[in-house]
């Protein structure tokens, strides 16, 4: 087999930032993950917090930051131990994925359930809900990915394994168990599937990424604990683009790392955020803050990623990184390494 020349340099060009901190409407409240839908739509999962349950939702907007709507809802507490976990509600939502027919899947690591919504946000159904470690049961499910057959892969965090389900939640197979060896996990979090059907897992507490074949065979791993090139401090999420380039949200190192298809380090981004469209509206409504920004030393900190928990790529070579603590998504565009031909 002829091996293509290794892509040693991946150029990511910063594009723009989406978001602002907001409990309703245009904006996010601790966006923990996102998925790209049809028509340039983004489904942004807002974790919010227990004391602002109204902020827990999925905000739908376009990549160009046009607000569309929001759906699902947080659960207001009724009493010290009383909740009303109605269908379609969210407590600790952690991951979102969209199937080929537009169904939106959301994992909830408190309710141990997967909820399904239509692309417009209507509630369809759910699976699981009771914690357990038997086949098909979940214990703090986190990452979600959907393969070419629309099967749903769920990272089963506290069971330290990955499970594969049919689109309506019938158990199919599983990978892994607790440990540090090949094919073993410690509290894994994010997941992605490349266009060959290979599975990539952010093996969170082992500070590494593992790759499996579609039938669950261990293929490779990379990364170790640390803050140097190719090292991780609790990687939260992984995404693979159509060229096989691997992007890792290196959570507590506050950066995005980029790897070639073999897992070789080829760069990092630490953030380039600028004021978003919604952010500008906000500042225009509070004009003295424009002045405060000018006076404040260290405003360049605003560019930096802060604890990114989600990374996604789309078919247009755009890379999205969401940062809960900053209520935003930074968008990059990958420069194509291939010669595109001159204009005619």
């Amino acid at each position: 087999m002829v091996t293509a020349q290794r892509i040693s340099h991946v150029q990511l060009q910063y594009s723009h930032t989406i978001g602002r901190g907001e409990q309703f409407g245009p904006g996010f409240t601790y966006p923990i993950h996102m998925a790209r839908g049809e028509d340039d739509l983004m489904y942004v999962l807002c974790r919010s917090s227990e004391y602002r349950p109204e902020g827990t939702r999925i905000t739908v907007c376009t990549v160009d930051e046009e607000y569309v709507n929001a759906f699902a809802r947080g659960v207001p507490q009724q009493g010290p131990h009383e909740y009303n976990f109605e269908d379609g509600s969210l407590v600790w939502p952690v991951n979102v994925a969209i199937s080929s027919n537009g169904t939106v899947y959301v994992s909830d690591e408190w309710l141990h359930r997967i909820s399904m919504f239509t692309r417009d946000g209507e509630y369809i159904g759910k699976w699981q809900e009771s914690v357990g470690s038997a086949e098909g049961q979940l214990d703090r499910p986190s990452g979600l990915a959907i393969d070419a057959d629309d099967n749903v892969w769920v990272v089963d965090g506290n069971n330290h394994r990955i499970q594969k389900f049919t689109p309506d939640g019938q158990f199919l197979s599983k990978i892994g168990s607790y440990g540090t060896g090949d094919g073993e996990f410690d509290t894994p979090w994010g997941i992605d599937i490349d266009n060959q059907g290979n599975i990539f897992i952010a093996d969170w507490r082992n500070d590494r990424i593992q790759k499996f074949s579609a039938d669950g065979r261990f293929l490779m791993k990379f990364g170790s604990s640390g803050s140097g090139d190719g090292e991780f401090n609790r990687p939260a999420d992984v995404a693979v683009d159509r060229d096989g380039i691997i992007y890792v949200a290196d959570w507590l190192n506050d950066r995005l790392q980029i790897f070639d298809p073999d897992g070789n380090f080829c760069g990092e981004k630490t953030g380039d955020a600028t004021v978003s469209k919604w952010g500008k509206d906000k500042l225009d409504a509070n004009p003295e803050m424009w002045g405060e920004r000018e006076r404040a030393p260290g405003l360049e900190r605003e560019k930096d990623f802060w604890a990114p928990t989600g990374v996604a790529v789309d078919d247009m070579n755009r890379v999205f990184v969401c940062e809960g603590p900053r209520n935003r998504i930074q968008v990059y565009r990958k420069q194509s390494p291939m010669f595109m031909g001159p204009r005619l």
């Binding site: 978001g19 602002r20 901190g21 919604w278 952010g279 803050m289 900190r301 605003e302 900053r326 209520n327």
Partner: peptide, 12 residues
């Protein structure tokens, strides 16, 4: 030091 205002992304 003067602080970065709260909007749009939060304080530092």
């Amino acid at each position: 030091t003067n602080s970065v205002p709260r909007y749009p992304y939060g304080k530092y």
